[in-house]
């Protein structure tokens, strides 16, 4: 079986995979990183979003072998070593942006990319558009949108007013 080498959450791995193995299967089944979820089979739900070389990617749409040499970050890699949550995780908690928690890892990973790619500020409409690839069945998105807006100043080191 072919071998794929990649860095996941700062750790180097070299894993045997089938040619057809998906990145999400590698993460969940070979590396036991079960925080990344599978919610559909048509790349619609976004529960499996991780960062590949800093960009949000649905890990069910990518073969494990395509991640050769890549730096992958999953939900497990976000909090600091001392347990301090990433500002996006903290805002999701503060604003009750999760209920069952199943879509949450993908939602948080998408949200971080969204905020990083909007350094000049972000509107509610842009946030809602940016979440187009992530489904949540519990929250109605209301609090997710609020949490992401609240994370913008924290991630860009600005005062709260800057986001408004």
């Amino acid at each position: 079986m072919p071998q794929v080498s990649l860095t996941v959450n700062g750790k180097q791995h070299s894993v045997e995979v089938e040619g057809r193995t998906l990145l999400v299967e590698l993460l969940r089944e070979k590396l036991a990183l079960t925080g990344t979820h599978v919610g559909c089979d048509t790349s619609q739900c976004g529960a499996c979003v991780v960062h590949v070389n800093g960009m949000a990617v649905k890990s069910c749409t990518m073969l494990a072998m395509q991640a050769e040499g890549a730096k992958v970050t999953t939900i497990e890699g976000l909090a600091a070593a001392d347990g301090t949550l990433h500002p996006m995780q903290e805002m999701f908690r503060e604003h009750h942006a999760l209920q069952c928690g199943f879509c949450t890892p993908g939602m948080v990973m998408t949200a971080i990319d969204l905020i990083q790619s909007h350094p000049q500020g972000i509107t509610e409409e842009q946030i809602r558009d940016g979440l187009e690839g992530n489904l949540c069945r519990c929250t109605g998105y209301h609090n997710i949108v609020k949490a992401i807006a609240a994370a913008w100043p924290l991630m860009h080191g600005k005062t709260a007013q800057a986001a408004e």
Binding site: T34, T36, H37, I75, R93, L98, G101
Partner: peptide, 15 residues
């Protein structure tokens, strides 16, 4: 704020 969020937000849920 919810007690369960800490595990869900860190990918530590047990589904």
């Amino acid at each position: 704020r919810r007690k369960e969020d800490r595990r869900f937000l860190r990918g530590q849920g047990n589904y």
